[in-house]
Design a protein around this nucleic acid. Sequence first.
DNA 1: ATGATGGTTTTGAACGTTCACATGAACGTT
DNA 2: AACGTTCATGTGAACGTTCAAAACCATCAT
Lengths: 370, 370
Amino acid sequence: MAVVERGTGTAARPTIGMVAERAGVSRQTISNAFNAPHRLRPETLAAVRVAIDELGYRPNQAARSLRTQATKVIGCRLLPSNYGGTGGVLDRLLHALCDTARSNGYDLLTFSAKDDDEEIAVYEDLLRRHAVDGFVLTNTHHGDARPDWLNEHHARFVAFGRPWGRRGAQHNWIDVDGAKGTAEAVGYLAGLGHTRIGFLGLPAGIGVGDDRLAGWERQTERLGLPTKGLLARAEDGIASGRALAEQLLAGPRPPSALVCVSDAMALGAMRAVEDRGWRAGREVSVVGFDDSPVASVMRPGLSSLRQPIEAVANQLVETLLAVLGAGQPRPVRTLIVPRLIVRESTGECHAKRPATAPAAQRGPRLNQQS
Amino acid sequence: MAVVERGTGTAARPTIGMVAERAGVSRQTISNAFNAPHRLRPETLAAVRVAIDELGYRPNQAARSLRTQATKVIGCRLLPSNYGGTGGVLDRLLHALCDTARSNGYDLLTFSAKDDDEEIAVYEDLLRRHAVDGFVLTNTHHGDARPDWLNEHHARFVAFGRPWGRRGAQHNWIDVDGAKGTAEAVGYLAGLGHTRIGFLGLPAGIGVGDDRLAGWERQTERLGLPTKGLLARAEDGIASGRALAEQLLAGPRPPSALVCVSDAMALGAMRAVEDRGWRAGREVSVVGFDDSPVASVMRPGLSSLRQPIEAVANQLVETLLAVLGAGQPRPVRTLIVPRLIVRESTGECHAKRPATAPAAQRGPRLNQQS
DNA sequence: ATGATGGTTTTGAACGTTCACATGAACGTT
DNA sequence: AACGTTCATGTGAACGTTCAAAACCATCAT
């Protein structure tokens, strides 16, 4: 645990040679102590470790990369945390990636790009300079040019997000099973007695939106619940959610619960509920998606489907390391199931006896999450 | 603009030697084409550029780092985007840092840490491995151990944030002038006719909070405005803001405007205003700090002091590069002034004629920001 | 004794670049 | 013509590590 030397003049950091000399062995032995300790005799290893500690030595990463042709760095584009209304999901992913990568001996190199083309340009630069070993892709979408580009250039990568709209995509990916999530939400609401459960979705053609919608469709059908007049779609956003919800609630046979494709939509929906003098979780239940920070902070708290981002990050790194190690192992296509976080915006159905006779006030049972 | 070779077997990327051979010059000449193009005769340079382009060559970063002892990488700790209620400021900073660094030929290496000690441990690791040239520190605070540690270990760094509580700190820093910001807010509100302007602050001892409070104190004094019973302090948060605002508004001589140390506080304050059946920007004006994404999205929009993060990032990188280049130039201590973004939560003072005679309805003049 | 075996350590070269210096050409001056 | 100067390019070494192969050294069977 010795401190980095601070000599009188230049702070010359130790090299493998200095450690070798101090331990009375060759350079290679020091190298082995790091890369293949099992090869050393226990006494030698101990002695070497003492020398390493005394000098506070760590292998120079540049020299190591040069020799091994591996930088131990993973590249990842940085998206605005509020990107596409994903409410901090990508921010959490980035954190988790840092942690997982580091505990596997890798570092994370981040860069920003205003669009996919610029992102590809950065890929090209980083690859040519041998500055990274591989990439983690986020925010995959229809007509995504990045996977093809990376494949053509023999780059190693994993994607967070399915290759929407491409059946035979050859790359590895991990994603969250949005359909399973919304299906769970519908099931939960049905369990609370709701029979008319609406869905606020995105315009057709957006992978994530279609996926989450499919879960609602599947589950309502399975449970024999109606869907007619209970689906509304528009661009993501609070304003959107408010308008769509108002539209459904103003219909002849309004829903008593709304499952939303995002927290932003759900926030808007709650607003629409309040506009009518009602309260989310009482007259109308609302469920969001992504469990963004606001969801837990607002009152009433927003029930939301939380993506298990830490698990996703683990899978991503694990898969990428497998790809980096062995050339190309079996393809990995993993779906991880989100978890419904229940807060006050969901409650039992009171559709039969509306606002005039409100149900017994449920205490503000805060199920706050972080 | 040639594409990276994709040979039949291994995709052997070009080296400086191959380019040299192709151009019929020596390796050093290729090197110079990148690092000192002015040294080459124009014709030579042109010929070399052709060869470089044809092969799609870029210098191998590891080899370069090994030789020059410079990695061209800057390290930066990643903080949760909702960290300490700073509402996306650090997220914006990270983006801006990426951009600025990259356009200066540097990459950004990010890592996460659960506390300062862990952060220092990562510093140590990265320094010993020669994985970075320097660091950007964020979130400086009282009793911060990081600058001292870095100085002792001869690390190069710049801080975003003043060395709170240390007069003679020796390192370079850039910060936002919170006091000037709140002073501007007070001035603006006074211009709208407000005379009783309150402040919702943080507990004493938090640098950022003390700074922003000081601006309110300074400006109210300068304008001869009262402060008694107009200051309330607590931990940051929406709930806090709501409670503090309610406390001030319930007083014998309540404020007609509130300047808040953060957007979270301001959100709470607006809530308290609504609790009383009032509307922010009409009966009581509210100003936040940081211009977080919610500020522009909510209705009424929250007026807020926006930190010019892009300018901060530029300064940070510029300063760090200066430190990395020349050993230690003149110390840099820069304060950058925030800008008041006016939205609907601020309006003319109507303290004399309260809610019964509301002023002419101001149209929802959306001054939405991004 | 001899040689084969297997574990442990050392040796020399190589990774791809840039540094410090050497070389050579072109030019103007004496 | 000889010289110094400047500019452009080439040469060999070095950065710090790991790879491949060789050398060493016990141990054991022959």
